[in-house]
Nucleic acid binder design. Structure first.
Lengths: 266, 266
DNA sequence: CTTGACCCTGACGCAACGTCAACCCTCCAC
DNA sequence: GTGGAGGGTTGACGTTGCGTCAGGGTCAAG
């Protein structure tokens, strides 16, 4: 009675979709007319409309198959499950919207608000964008790696910034990209860092070094950023401090075993 | 520094995904070590986390490419557009949920509430499920074809059911599947239909036949449902009425030209 | 020396069709 | 009768974002 295009039109789908449903056995192949054309009846229209209704709702065709060939009780169960999946998917998309919104507003990508605020505070101190980019990238990694640690560590950072020594340190770090490698101010940087660490150790905040490959990765990033960074770390190592992201004391007898100790003065 | 699996772990993606991003040029291929292994640095981690964040939000990878390689203003614009798309998608899924909910509750599939109610009224009259299935399928097609006509036509059907003649008609139709082809009650059915049509014509409700292939399709379905249906329509044709879904008067001189007129009595 | 846990490339698979290509039918106008 | 428009047919490749082998090589440890 019906050609494939009229069948498709009645059900509101494309001809290609109908043929696809034939291929996967979702809609039975109908009789052919004398010239090989498929010839459909109304039952096909009804089945196709049902298929379309479910498929449009995002139900996978394999599941459509099951549902249509099942009894009413299995059908109801299947529909309930699909509803649950839809709810979950909607929630997922809404989460994504929130995240995307933060992307647009915040520090480019993938950063919690606390970090964005912290970086803004650095900007407020006049810190150079190149240094901020370094910090940002490090925080991106930290946020991906240990998201629930971030706010805690950021809070500590904020407290650090209440110390004028640290403000001075950031001033120096901010300029560091424009220095020559042998600029004497690297020593001031090392001094500031060391003073701060000594006070931290005295205060019992011995951040005894998370000592894991992730910290090594962060350190490596920092070292690669500039030869001056390497000098700073080298000076600190000579003085018995190891690392950067998570600095820790090194037993005195091992100092020197870890660094070539050749390019620093003092 | 990093092997591919550690890189992937840091960013929360699979190794296969990383290689895929290389293939499509989304993440640059890094250096290889002496044995041909890819060797990543922290910058790769950062880029990969960014990619992952966007991709997880449902952004197509091609678009991720554009966004990451664009300036902040283009980035913001792109993000805004993605947000619009997400909103649209969420709305779509919510529509689907509503439809799915009606599927579960209502008359199996793809029917508006008015039709479901109407079919329930038929059930209340004791109409056989086989007949109801026929009606349901017809309504599925009508609802897909002319959704805004449905409620109007259903309202008319409800008014019809206030007529005891129609109630009697449905009683008969309900049993029809168990009759032998030559059951005399088919004549009673024809009488009832004819009386109703005459009154309809007198009342000026000459539903002068939507006369289109869609109506033909509905009629064909009805005719195929049972040989008795064919007899009923044949009797009506002898008396000058044509069709079923949308019955109309046929000029007297053409009666008989349309039917073989051989199997009816009276 | 073997074993297990990595790494590599290449290639097919999936879901739900879209989109040619190359060819057949039918009808209608010229 | 012939050509063109507008149907239909099968076959096969393209899309998106990877999953999942297959068939190798590499590396550290027991």
């Amino acid at each position: 009675m019906l050609t494939i295009s009229r069948l498709a039109a009645y059900a509101g789908v494309t001809v290609r979709a109908v043929r696809h449903y034939h291929q996967i056995g979702l809609l039975p192949e109908p009789e052919r007319d004398h010239s090989g054309y498929r010839s459909y009846d109304a039952a096909a229209v009804v089945r196709l409309i049902r298929i379309h209704t479910l498929a449009e709702a995002g139900v996978p065709l394999a599941r459509v198959q099951e549902l249509l060939d099942a009894g009413p009780e299995a059908f109801a169960g299947g529909v309930a499950e699909i509803d649950r999946e839809l709810r979950a998917e909607i929630r997922r998309l809404q989460d994504n919207r929130r995240r995307i919104a933060r992307l647009a507003a915040g520090e480019q990508l993938a950063l919690p608000q606390s970090v964005v605020d912290y970086l803004d505070r650095l900007r407020g101190l006049g810190v150079d964008e190149r240094y901020i980019a370094l910090e940002r990238d490090a925080w991106i990694m930290v946020a991906a790696q240990a998201p629930d640690l971030v706010d805690h560590v950021i809070a500590q950072k904020h407290r650090d910034l209440d110390d004028p020594d640290m403000v001075r340190l950031y001033e120096l770090l901010s300029e560091v990209f424009d220095w020559r490698t042998d600029d004497p101010r690297v020593v001031e940087i090392a001094d500031l860092v060391e003073r701060r660490m000594i006070r931290a150790v005295e205060a019992g905040e011995l951040g005894d070094g998370v000592d894991n490959p992730f910290v090594d990765l962060l350190d490596a990033t920092m070292l690669e950023s500039s030869p001056i960074a390497q000098r700073i770390v080298a000076i600190l190592e000579e003085r018995g401090w190891q690392g950067w992201t998570s600095i820790k004391r090194v037993p005195a007898d091992r100092v020197g075993a870890l660094t070539d100790g050749s390019m620093t003065r003092r």
